[in-house]
Design a protein around this nucleic acid. Sequence first.
DNA 1: CATAAACCTTTCTGTAACTGTAGGGTAAAG
DNA 2: CTTTACCCTACAGTTACAGAAAGGTTTATG
Lengths: 143, 143
Amino acid sequence: MNIGQAAAQSGLPVKTLRYYEEIGLVTPARTEGNDYRDYSVMDVEHLRFLQRARAVGFNLEVCRELLDLYRNENRRCSQVKRLVLEKIEQVEVQLQELHALKSILTDMANGCAGDDSADCTIIETLAQPKPSFMPFMLVESSS
Amino acid sequence: MNIGQAAAQSGLPVKTLRYYEEIGLVTPARTEGNDYRDYSVMDVEHLRFLQRARAVGFNLEVCRELLDLYRNENRRCSQVKRLVLEKIEQVEVQLQELHALKSILTDMANGCAGDDSADCTIIETLAQPKPSFMPFMLVESSS
DNA sequence: CATAAACCTTTCTGTAACTGTAGGGTAAAG
DNA sequence: CTTTACCCTACAGTTACAGAAAGGTTTATG
């Protein structure tokens, strides 16, 4: 089938399919006369697999590993699980960082009048933070 | 002062200082003989301000706005606070997305034996998810 | 049969915020 | 004088595509 149909069935944009071919993830056949890409049913399965793996946050490098495992009958389930556990750890780190940021930003907003004056505690904090307010800055600036 | 010292005092890498000059954020003077960058004390203040604004998650576009407000004596505090409140909203959206991802990934990991067999429920889920497992896929694939 | 719409093709450029590398000039120390 | 540590510019690379230019093909319609 043509690229447009493959895109519709996989839930991915046409440009993404061309990109995935360029980096060797899913390489469809070509029709003889006109050089159009010709995606097989299995190609589309792989594209759908990639779409879902991306949707749960795996980057393309890991998606490639996952797809290789999907295509490999000799895979071991433990290999797959390890990738998922690693991703969970990354997500947890990101969550912690974002929680910390939100806490700082919320403190900033709460300490700020938000009126028409030029005096602004947020600007002051960014210009010269009190350690009690942004304690991690001590660590950062000592590196 | 030279770029190396300015970098050390601001907590930013040398390459970042050159980049910030390239995009017009902080443009130091040049020494006459050798074209070395010559950062003033105020330049370094601005760099430190940028370092902290970046550290709490603002992108460079917003950092530029914040720096402009910092330099502008006619700023209104409310303008600053609005930027912080917007950022908080963004962080909250990201937190929700990450929580959802973590939940899906954790379900995947929990449902998987992680042994030496080739049968893997994670791979199966990515290949053909059950709606109860990845319900958002229904929305995604209908677009 | 002509033509217009809807496909398809390649290639180049751009995104964010830098980092790395190549190839060179300059300054302080021994 | 030489080494070492700076400094400079300019260009390529990173992620995962999206947009646009310029053109070939297929299909539907008049």
